[in-house]
């Protein structure tokens, strides 16, 4: 934790810059969502990468995770592992007989 007053003085400026970056990337996110990539899955992927980048800016700079004590990282390590499990759970549905085959009208008709 930066307890050095001079450093804190400097960080005020840094916070404004990071805020500006976050705004810029929000605009980019909105713009990218209107770009027609080869598949919509790619749009989602790109959108999530930008969001993850923004989230890490918030976590590292605003939440001071770039210089934190060890115990915090230990707690967060477990959280990251557990939450990652939640996000890949859906892969289990790949064994599911219901398969998405695109927005093909004829397949919907015979449902």
């Amino acid at each position: 934790m930066a307890d050095n007053l001079e450093e804190i003085q400097k960080s005020v400026k840094k916070y404004l810059v990071i805020g500006g970056l976050l705004l810029l990337f929000t605009v980019i996110t909105v713009w990218l969502s209107y770009v027609e990539l080869p598949t919509h899955g790619m749009n989602i992927m790109v959108g999530m990468i930008v969001a993850a980048f923004k989230a890490s800016l918030v976590a590292l700079i605003f939440m001071h995770l770039n210089h934190e004590k060890k115990i915090i990282y230990k707690v967060l390590l477990f959280t990251v592992i557990l939450v990652s499990v939640l996000f890949v759970l859906f892969y289990m549905t790949h064994g599911d007989p219901l398969v998405f085959e695109g927005f093909d009208k004829t397949s919907i008709k015979h449902h």
Binding site: G47, M48, A55
Partner: peptide
């Protein structure tokens, strides 16, 4: 209190694209 507030912002950073854009 600020750490909690940043977390709320962090959640929104994912919610906005997932619900509004993608």
């Amino acid at each position: 209190g600020g750490l909690f507030w940043h977390f709320v912002d962090l959640v929104w950073i994912f919610l906005f694209p997932l619900l509004y854009l993608l």
